[in-house]
């Protein structure tokens, strides 16, 4: 074997980038992620048929809400939001736990990247895929809405909607990766956040119902739940556009509030989840026994 001296790039950023590439390759090799991407794209395009049906109803005078076909892209991007959020959970939920479950963590953490670099690299890699998926979904939606419903309006909002969607979805993405590191169990770290995604809007709806029936100020309870901040993409769209594009979310429409507050709330959750995961990865033994 040769004994050549080594040189070349070996900076922390370089190591983080290599780990990020590793995470991208790892994530894209998972069937559930590929299925999720196909489902998200399928749901966006499929929602076009739903919107078309709603237009038919409106034109027949059977729908009291005015539907604007030039805002189809808003409707079509809102429909797969649960799938996109779930995809974030799947990406984050397996990020660390799968390394422990498959016992590849021992190899990964014994290499030159520090625990911090592995942590940052893996999140960066997962996030890059997630951003790409959301961006591709929005781009597909815009193209499909043009094809199905003609010229679209308010597209100047698209970059803001995209940014808000990415940031809002990071709440559950980071929640999943926190569980992934803390529990080292992929099933738990995926099922718990997805269950919360399902349950919390119901809790929000109940709270709003109680507020409206009792007259007490209970909305603040709904607003501290992570699902409120994760719906950030809704809040950056003016309310009348949401109505005209048929994006009817009973709870969030009642809770429709300051997007800046929602962004702050999301930031709080993201920081808390990431910090908990980081402290655990930094202090806990990679292996036991």
């Amino acid at each position: 074997m040769s004994m050549r001296p080594m040189a070349g790039g070996f900076s922390p950023l370089w190591r983080i980038w290599i780990v990020a590439e590793y995470e991208i390759q790892r994530s894209l090799a998972k069937k559930k992620i590929i299925v999720g991407i196909i489902l998200a794209l399928g749901a966006s395009i499929g929602s076009g048929y739903l919107f078309s049906y709603a237009i038919g109803l409106y034109e027949a005078g059977r729908l009291p809400i005015p539907v604007d076909r030039s805002l189809a892209w808003i409707f079509m991007f809102s429909i797969p939001s649960f799938i996109l959020a779930s995809l974030g959970v799947l990406l984050g939920g397996g990020m660390f736990s799968e390394e422990y479950e498959k016992r590849t963590a021992e190899i990964l953490f014994s290499k030159p990247p520090t625990r911090t670099e592995v942590f940052v690299g893996k999140i960066l890699g997962g996030l890059m895929i997630y951003v790409a998926i959301i961006t591709i979904t929005l781009a597909t939606v815009i193209v499909a809405s043009h094809v199905f419903f003609g010229a679209q309006s308010m597209l100047s909002l698209a970059p803001t909607v995209l940014a808000a969607s990415i940031y809002g979805n990071m709440v559950f993405f980071t929640m999943a990766l926190m569980f992934s590191q803390l529990t080292r169990n992929t099933l738990i770290s995926s099922v718990v956040p997805i269950s919360l995604l399902v349950i919390m809007p119901i809790i929000q709806a109940v709270i709003i119902f109680l507020e409206r029936t009792t007259g007490e100020d209970l909305a603040w309870i709904a607003r501290i739940l992570p699902t409120w901040s994760s719906d950030l993409q809704i809040y950056v769209i003016p309310r009348e556009l949401l109505v005209r594009s048929l994006v009817l979310f009973p709870t969030t429409s009642f809770l429709y509030g300051d997007p800046v507050l929602a962004a702050f709330s999301a930031t709080g959750y993201i920081m808390a989840f990431v910090s908990a995961a980081y402290i655990d990865i930094a202090l806990r033994d990679v292996t036991r026994g």
Partner: peptide, 29 residues
């Protein structure tokens, strides 16, 4: 380092994995 009965990333080929390890260890490209 080689752990006992190593579990290596099964989504990579042998070549890809060695390339990854070489890069992460700073072997010049």
């Amino acid at each position: 380092y080689m752990p006992e009965l190593p579990n290596l990333p099964d989504f990579m080929t042998g070549r890809q994995f060695l390339e990854f390890v070489a890069r992460v260890n700073g072997v010049p490209s």
